[in-house]
């Protein structure tokens, strides 16, 4: 399972930069970042090295951070690749709250991060369908211990 940081950001100048600076200074390499925004605030979702340690660093800097479990799955890089994945989950009544994707250089597949209602069930379904669910350690350096 992948641990994703969700960081609450007021819509003010420099807040996203401030968050990235904290992660950078504490040596957390980011693998993926997506911001969901409204007129007043946004929520930044971050996949990075040692997410629990990163959370502590951000909280110490005054950010509101929550840790969310998400599923990462390799999706074949061809038309209809993602559609098939979503249909599979849809048929099994697994609700997808949101998703975003990133490409790993050199790999022939995109990695999609799925925020779903039931993480365990989604992972099992995807594996049974022959898709490659990506373990945390192949995306980022997990926290020790």
């Amino acid at each position: 399972m992948i641990e994703q940081l969700s960081v609450f950001l007021e819509n003010e100048r420099g807040r996203l930069a401030g968050m990235c600076r904290v992660l950078g200074d504490a040596g957390h390499d980011m693998r993926a970042l997506v911001v969901a925004d409204t007129t007043e605030y946004g929520v930044a979702r971050v996949i990075c090295d040692r997410p629990r340690e990163a959370r502590r660093a951000l909280e110490a800097a005054g950010f509101a951070v929550s840790l969310t479990s998400v599923v990462a799955v390799e999706v074949p890089d061809r038309p209809g690749g993602l559609a098939a994945v979503l249909e599979l989950l849809d048929h099994a009544d697994v609700n997808v709250e949101y998703l975003y994707c990133f490409l790993r250089p050199g790999a022939g597949a995109a990695v999609d991060i799925l925020r779903v209602g039931d993480v365990e069930k989604a992972a099992t379904l995807l594996q049974e369908a022959g898709l490659s669910v990506v373990p945390a350690r192949s995306v980022y350096a997990p926290d020790e211990g």
Binding site: Q4, S6, F8, A36, T38, Y41, V43, R45, E59, A64, V65, S66, T68, E97, Y98, R115
Partner: peptide
């Protein structure tokens, strides 16, 4: 209202 770690705020709809 201050958003705190005890809140579920990963999803925008929770905040809304």
């Amino acid at each position: 209202v201050e958003v705190g770690p005890e809140m579920e705020f990963d999803e925008i709809r929770e905040l809304e």
